[in-house]
């Protein structure tokens, strides 16, 4: 089971993507790869009547997600080589790049889009919770990058005291994989399965 997880404060996030780039820089990711995604979820309408009066029920909120190091990780379950595994010390889910064959099964299965096959490297890649830093008693890079302090990381019990297990659109129902991402949802947050809203920034997430 996981020991650590992420915390996301949806009332503070302004969708700047600093977390995405701090991670890209630390992990030296080229174009085409990011271990973190900031989704912008938009719904409602802004309209104007015949007299020119504007009305709006438009809502937009953001969610920043990397890998949730799920308790019921489907990536580990489906991996044919057992390359996808939990680090015995930290419990964070990592790829053993020496074993991985890059079949992409994890990438297909994960409903959070965490793993992805890097063909240039020959294996699957994803957020590993900055496993190396955690072992060194440091925090993941994204946590300390966020200018509005919207991200956190820590022991799951601590996170459970701060927020609720993520179960908002556009992310999936938490029961699929039991994600270790705990959030403070914003006022605009909508439940999973909302159908009158959409991911408004598909070109901004990898």
């Amino acid at each position: 089971m996981s020991i650590y997880g992420f915390y996301f404060d949806g009332t503070r996030c302004t969708a700047c993507k600093t977390c995405v780039y701090a991670c890209k820089d630390k992990n030296d990711l080229n174009l085409g790869f990011a271990y973190r995604r900031v989704f912008e979820y938009t719904g409602g309408d802004t309209t104007r009547d015949g007299a020119g009066a504007i009305s709006s029920d438009c809502f937009t909120y953001s969610v920043s997600v990397s890998c949730n190091h799920c308790d019921n990780a489907v990536c580990i379950e489906v991996c044919p080589t057992a390359a996808m595994h939990r680090d015995p010390q930290t419990g964070l889910i990592c790829v053993d790049s020496s074993v991985c064959i890059g079949c992409g099964y994890c990438a297909l299965s994960c409903p959070y889009r965490a793993p992805k096959v890097d063909r240039a490297k020959g294996h699957s890649v994803k957020c590993d919770g900055c496993n190396d830093l955690i072992k060194d008693d440091k925090a993941p890079v994204c946590i300390l990058a966020c200018p509005t302090r919207a991200l956190g990381f820590g022991k799951i019990s601590e996170l459970q005291a701060k927020g609720e297990q993520v179960n908002i659109a556009p992310l999936p129902e938490k029961d699929y994989t039991l994600p270790n991402m705990y959030i403070k949802p914003s006022k605009d947050a909508r439940p999973v399965g909302t159908d009158n809203a959409f991911i408004a920034n598909p070109l901004e997430v990898l």
């Binding site: 080589t81 064959i101 890059g102 294996h123």
Partner: peptide
Amino acid sequence: LATPQNALNALNG
């Protein structure tokens, strides 16, 4: 596969 030479690892699971 991205690393076909390790294909036999697919038997691990």
